[in-house]
Write a protein that binds this DNA or RNA. Sequence first.
DNA 1: CCCAATTTGTTCGTATGTATC
DNA 2: AGATACATACGAACAAATTGG
Lengths: 254, 254
Amino acid sequence: MNQQDFVSPKRIKRADQIVESIKRWVVVNGKQPGDRLPNEKELIEQFECSKGTVREALKSLEVQGLVSIRTGPNGGAILERVPYEKASQLLRNFLHFEQPSGPEIYALRTLVEPEIAALAAERLNQDDLAKLEALVERCRAPAQSFDERMEQRIAELEFHVVLAQRCDNVMLAFIGRFINDMIRDLVIFKKAQLPEQQEFSCANLEYHTKLLEAFRARDAQAARQLMLEHMQSAEHFNRELEGQLQKHFLSSDH
Amino acid sequence: MNQQDFVSPKRIKRADQIVESIKRWVVVNGKQPGDRLPNEKELIEQFECSKGTVREALKSLEVQGLVSIRTGPNGGAILERVPYEKASQLLRNFLHFEQPSGPEIYALRTLVEPEIAALAAERLNQDDLAKLEALVERCRAPAQSFDERMEQRIAELEFHVVLAQRCDNVMLAFIGRFINDMIRDLVIFKKAQLPEQQEFSCANLEYHTKLLEAFRARDAQAARQLMLEHMQSAEHFNRELEGQLQKHFLSSDH
DNA sequence: CCCAATTTGTTCGTATGTATC
DNA sequence: AGATACATACGAACAAATTGG
């Protein structure tokens, strides 16, 4: 039925072709977030296909986070910036079966966080600094309970997310935020097994305090160096923790 | 009609609920790639909904790259590892409106490539080394034409992709491959504007040759150091190139 | 090679909710 | 408030693909 059938053993669905066509159309016409796509009727005659096929293509674009579809008159598909949450979720799907280990995550973190800190140092405003200080202060009082300890651990990670969001390299910003989200989920997931690690919390608090000073002084070099030491320390403690968990797992059952 | 209507102003579609349920089902039952999902009929009675709704949910999972759907007896949806190409494409959607600049990409590259080189140094086998050598040799003869120059440029990038694929940190491997894919597209897109840059090609060839030696000797430290210098050099040349392009753009028209 | 069983894929018609004018 | 346009959801019938005898 199609001339492509001889070259391509795998049939390419019409809806997917339309998705690609629409993407090209967006790129070559320089369409921006907020711009409207042609409505259903126009797309149907443009691509000479049924209403269902167009709807399937739009549906696919929606799942990818590229458009949102509004109901009502003058509704239809409008272009959207892909929200971080969507991109994050799709990347996590990819990593689910790859199972990155704790050490792998921390190794990447050690590479990127110092640079993020250096870039953020030059861009943090008073609001950001206040937010960071609040997060640091929340970790200062010794935790009284299990939940409180976990809450402090998440506040620590939030400190890094704030830095990532203020970093003006979009790729570094994404990776930084993504890594901290992953670690947050690890913390929550392993919460039943999470031992005390008082030393770890103290070290983190100290580093964050010093980092805050460097940020206030807008000292990028100091921030980079402090963050590097902070990450190496965290990497060390994580290795220790995983060793403990392994031992506990081996001795308890199985 | 729904108790959620008070807390959540935004109605959550049934199909999306089913998607989330299936994802949870996969995680808690430890399903692996190749395992089959329940077929349409079972899903319909499981979720008490129509065939169309189930199909929409499966469609969504397919767009996300999590399942592939086959027809016929013993057909249905089977779990898939999300292929790199899918994850890459979805992340590029996210970055499309963020427009990472050349310098931003190269800055991240300078951070991750040295580590990738160090990790790869310990894992490259004879086949990999032969492949790398072939790619280096392809760049040795001076390019005679425009297309040949571009082909060499792409072979240079392929060198880095091979390293990324052999790196045993899945997150680093993904980022490394992704960055080189992005640069490849930049090269192809800007091909009309690509000036000669003989020095750049020579420097790259020299670094790749030295790196190959280090890989043969399984010298991770040397590989890391060489790659760092290589990346700093590339970052420098890219800055120069963008300066030239900017000047050319300003003087030619507009 | 064809037939039959099985399972997905497509296309109707219809009803209902919901946002916009 | 009412009319309109669109999305969502359902059901049933039919089409297409794949497998195994």
